Computed example of a mutant assay.
Amino acid sequence: MQHTVRIWDLPTRLFHWTLAAAFVALVASAKLGGAALVWHERLGYLMLALLAFRLAWGLVGGRWSRFTSFVYSPARLLRYVRGQGQEHVDDVGHSPLGALSVFGLLAALILQVASGLASDDEISFTGPLVRFLSGDWVERATWYHADIGQYLLLALVALHLLAIAFYALVRRRRILRPMLSGDKQLPRPVPASRDDARTRLLALVLAGLAGLLAWWVSRLDAGGL
């Protein structure tokens, strides 16, 4: 008997797809250059807000969106890689490998946004954190943002997409549908993520605060302390 369980709450799903769209737009605007860099900057602040929201939601969000639900020990990760894991437990939310991918992507995105805020291309953009840093640190941040970070992110995203394809084509597991509907079909009942009006209102408040944070950061170069 299959059990339908709400795994991904609506705020998590909206975050996921907005993040994906913002990432694609950021890459495209960076490659186009010129006037598109204005949008690259704006999208960078959007990304900052999204990441701030996800960090907060990882503490208070739905059960399976919380970081505590997908922090695995090295031993458990190794058992999963060897095919010795417990599917009914390890594959409810983020699997051990999926969790590794999520944390890796979040860390790389945070580094990319932070380096962008501290970058200065000496042509059309000066990040709002530049005035607080030495020239050496600004140079390092600019170098990382343009020459390292973007390619690291592209590699991690490619691995993420390959993993999705592997699970869908080889293991015959539906990865994308639950991130659209929020529900998973599971062989055993598990606690569901809370996804009611109260939870969504909390998410809306956190999203607003994250947006205010991004706006405040954007104003730092204009003396917005």
Rank of each mutant, 00 (worst) to 15 (best):
W64E: 00
G83M: 03
D90K: 08
S73K: 10
G61F: 07
G62N: 02
E139P: 06
P128F: 01
V71Y: 13
F103P: 03
R173W: 04
G33K: 09
R198E: 13
S181Y: 04
V130Q: 05
A56S: 15
G98P: 05
G208F: 08
Q185W: 11
S29A: 12
Q2R: 14
W64R: 02
M47I: 12
L169S: 03
D120R: 11
E139N: 14
H40I: 11
P128Y: 05
Y144P: 04
M1Y: 09
G149H: 01
S95H: 10
R140S: 13
L97I: 13
G62V: 09
L111W: 11
Q84K: 14
A158T: 14
Y72S: 04
W17M: 06
A56V: 15
G211M: 03
L78D: 10
F23R: 04
R66G: 11
V92N: 03
V138R: 00
W17G: 05
P96A: 10
A203S: 00
A56Y: 01
D9Q: 08
L204R: 06
R6W: 03
H94S: 10
V190M: 03
A108D: 05
Q150H: 12
L153F: 08
Y45R: 04
L176C: 08
T68N: 10
A36F: 15
D9C: 06
T199N: 10
L26Y: 02
D183F: 13
L55G: 13
V27A: 14
Q185F: 10
R54P: 03
R54Q: 11
P191E: 02
R66V: 10
L176T: 10
D90Y: 09
Q86A: 14
A99W: 12
G44P: 05
G127C: 09
Y144A: 08
Y72L: 03
W64Y: 12
L111F: 13
R63D: 03
M1G: 14
Y80H: 12
L55W: 12
S124P: 02
L202S: 11
R82T: 04
W143F: 15
L43E: 09
S69Q: 03
D183V: 15
